[in-house]
């Protein structure tokens, strides 16, 4: 009888360790989902035709931030694009971008369009996997209307969900 108890007590740590290991693997595998969104809040803007309302791909554009370091660009002239991310300045209440058209018949400085976003930024903890970031609440938009027809915001809250929230409608020919 004593030997039975002794054997049982000797086996107990092994049984406990095995159960804990199995439970740990099960718990962790059930709980590990990873970051399925972006790790920062960057608004995605899409280009649309004002005449048809459909998304368009535009070339011969230069797009960059006003006062960006080294006059760096987001889109260079050789690129064809139908959408792009427009990162906001977290420590500033607004961010302004310019769109310069470099096609020969449009390549005049006075035709360059600008879009200014005014917003508030808030420090935000998204999740353990996606981390911490700033989120933005767009308060207003102002823009020139040389070749831009209008700018629409589908959702003023910019967080790390990868979805298009800004629509830029250009005057395009049929």
């Amino acid at each position: 009888m004593k030997s039975g108890r002794f054997n049982r007590l000797r086996l107990l740590p092994i049984i406990a360790a095995t159960v804990i290991a199995v439970m740990t693997i099960a718990v962790e595998s059930c709980n590990d989902i990873g970051c399925t969104d972006l790790r920062s809040s960057i608004p995605l803007a899409g280009f649309y035709s004002s005449s048809t309302g459909s998304q368009v791909t535009i070339d011969s554009l230069l797009i960059g931030g006003v006062s960006a370091p080294h006059d760096s660009l987001l889109v260079d002239s050789g690129a064809r694009t139908s959408s792009l991310y427009l990162p906001f300045r977290a420590e500033k209440p607004s961010t302004t971008y310019f769109i310069k058209y470099v096609r020969k018949e449009l390549d005049f400085p006075e035709l360059t369009d600008t879009i200014k976003f005014d917003y508030t930024s808030t420090a935000y903890f998204a999740s353990a996997d996606c981390g911490a970031m700033f989120i933005y609440d767009i308060k207003s938009i102002s823009y020139t209307r040389h070749l831009i027809d209008s700018v629409a915001i589908t959702d003023s809250l910019i967080n790390n969900m990868d979805m298009e929230r800004i629509k830029i409608f250009f005057r395009t020919s049929e």
């Binding site: 960006a68 760096s72 903890f125 911490a132 970031m133 700033f134």
Partner: peptide, 14 residues
């Protein structure tokens, strides 16, 4: 509480 550094775009160099 959370302390972090931004992982946003480096475009603005901030």
């Amino acid at each position: 509480s959370v302390e972090a550094t931004s992982t946003g775009s480096s475009y603005w160099g901030e």
